Simulated scan of single mutants.
Amino acid sequence: MSRSPSPLSPVDPAREAALGALDPLIVTKLWENPCWLSFRLNFVAFRFNDPVYRWIETRYGLVRPDFVALYAVGLKEGVAAKNIVASAGLPKNTLSRAIQKLLQRRLLKRESDPADLRSYVLHLTPAGRKIFDETMPLMVEQQQAMLACLSSEEQRQLRTLMDKLVIASPDWPQEL
């Protein structure tokens, strides 16, 4: 695959050879694109999420919003639905329906918030905890497979750089 050098991607023969194995449109979108960051982040996230969420849907009958809510509660018991919405990047009504479904399936339970008795917080039921505990090793394994091409130092650097992006995100424009 012969490409003209892009100002966004200096020529590296080993990388050029590896890029030759990818679909040409993937190469264009991820290397010859002024919006390279968002496209690469989305590409990597999709390569993690798609097999994970397909497996979860097949195994447990939970679609992505359902599992996003269950996973959030598994990470932080006693969280409110509004916190799940704030952290998930999914519409409020979509997550509200997912939470209702999880409550009906008895994978989550709702309790009064001890700090504000007018509000509710969510907890995993034993059945919900079982799903969370069964899926976590698969997700960790998928992440390890994705990071295997990076040295320990590169993984640390990636984490540090991603931390910076996430911490700066409240300053980004919310509307275009």
Rank of each mutant, 00 (worst) to 15 (best):
N42Y: 13
E77R: 14
V73N: 04
Y60A: 06
K82G: 05
D50L: 15
A72P: 01
E77Y: 04
T94H: 04
T94P: 01
N93I: 05
L62M: 08
I56Q: 08
W55R: 11
I56H: 05
L70G: 00
L103N: 07
A69T: 05
K76T: 13
R64A: 09
K92Q: 05
G74D: 08
N93M: 11
N83I: 02
A69W: 02
A81F: 12
A98R: 05
A72M: 03
P51K: 14
L70S: 01
L62C: 05
V44K: 03
P91A: 13
K92T: 02
L41S: 09
G61M: 11
N83V: 03
T94C: 03
S96W: 09
Y60Q: 06
V52T: 10
G61W: 07
A45Y: 04
G61T: 12
G61H: 09
F48S: 03
V85Q: 10
Y60W: 15
L103M: 14
R47F: 03
L41V: 14
R54A: 12
L41Y: 12
G89W: 11
V44I: 14
R47N: 14
L62Y: 02
R59A: 14
V68H: 02
L103R: 14
E57S: 12
Y71C: 06
A98L: 10
L95A: 00
L62H: 03
A98D: 06
E57Q: 15
R59W: 02
R47W: 05
V85E: 11
W55M: 07
T58W: 07
A98Q: 08
V63Y: 00
A88G: 14
I99R: 06
F46Q: 12
D66F: 00
R97Q: 09
G61I: 10
D66Q: 08
L75C: 11
G78N: 09
A81P: 03
L62D: 03
F46G: 06
I56M: 10
R47G: 03
L102F: 03
E77S: 15
R40C: 06
W55P: 00
R59G: 04
L70H: 00
A88S: 15
R59M: 09
L103S: 11
Y71I: 00
F46L: 13
A86Q: 15
A45E: 08
L90R: 12
R59S: 14
L95Y: 00
I99L: 10
P65W: 07
V79Q: 07
R47L: 14
K82F: 09
S87W: 04
R40K: 09
F67C: 02
